[in-house]
Nucleic acid binder design. Structure first.
Lengths: 178, 178
DNA sequence: ATCGGTCCCTAACAATCGTTAGGTTCGCCC
DNA sequence: GGGCGAACCTAACGATTGTTAGGGACCGAT
């Protein structure tokens, strides 16, 4: 049921998604949702929290690997994309539907979000030390590029996720000109 | 009234925005909107089309300038950001609310959207000729980075729009490492 | 055998939505 | 000065929304 909800939230956003739609996708009736969640807001928060948990898990999995230097960043980018495209609709729901939720709901997800962003800030500070450039701003640009891929990238198309991760990492580190 | 509508669509998305809200912001009643637009969908399309028109205008203004090479790209990036932050909420509405609209409404705006994207594809092909790299993919990454700024950038903050345009251009062309 | 709890149902609630019908006011034009 | 259309109003429509009340079926434990 959580998965059906996530899929709807990805495709339609928070407000446009109906509890009756989610219920039908899950093979139950709308009122039955309230046996598992106290409100639509709670259901939404549960979906987004699950999505964020998966991103952190993906991140931690790379931490245990032994890649070095540039390949290391590439592995993290690949992990981020993997959570977005390969680990169910939860993470995609977080990225796509977060901004469509009312402010009150968004605030409940921000802490988990901040935690993940902090991981990336530390990662970039670790991989690209020294220099007066603003790593926080660069991280935001990287996130913008990575997260926007859900709007156009098709993992079943010509380009593979590995290739996309490679292109993203290479472009981020060395730019579009070679 | 179009402006009030755009502001609401930016902040809340399509589905969560009520005609009664837009009407109240405009100092009229909800039913009076129907004297200017045939439906909520038409109003939304009008807002997004206006936003896209402003982006194209911004783009064309740079075309008339005489910047060369790297500075030229930077001027285009600055123009894109300018449309996003300085030319009213229409362009921001397009970027932020497009994905929150039902598919039928989105389809009506796609042509104008495609036109603008084609301008950028030509621009990049012109500025960065030769090379087997996929300019279309790189353009999507650049758009992702640029458009995501509406979610966090504050033009009244420490960093100016000029600085942000510089950082974006530099990072896109030469990467985050120097 | 019966209790408690889980899971789901039907039926309905008040609220709010986009939209329509019909009327009023105002200024412009012949 | 009579007509006309633009701009706005009030009032209401049917549909849909999130949510609640109350009940039935099944389960394992007592």
């Amino acid at each position: 049921m959580l998965e059906a909800a996530a899929q709807r939230f990805v495709a339609q956003g928070y407000a446009a998604t109906t509890l009756r739609q989610i219920a039908q996708d899950s093979g139950i009736k709308a009122a039955s949702i309230y046996h598992h969640f106290a409100s639509k807001q709670d259901l939404f928060v549960a979906v987004l929290d699950e999505g964020m948990r998966m991103m952190v898990d993906s991140f931690d999995a790379v931490r245990a690997s032994s890649e070095l230097g540039e390949l290391r960043l590439r592995a993290y980018v690949r992990a981020h994309l993997s959570a977005l495209f390969e680990h169910g609709p939860f993470t995609a729901a977080h990225v796509a539907a977060f901004s469509t939720a009312p402010a009150g709901v968004r605030a409940r997800v921000v802490p988990a979000r901040d935690g993940y962003e902090a991981l990336w800030n530390e990662l970039l500070a670790d991989l690209m030390p020294a220099g007066d450039r603003d790593l926080h701003l660069l991280r935001l640009l990287l996130f913008g590029a990575m997260n926007s891929t859900i709007e156009w990238f098709d993992p079943a198309g010509e380009t593979t996720l590995d290739q996309l991760a490679g292109l993203l990492t290479d472009q981020f580190l060395h730019g579009a000109t070679r």
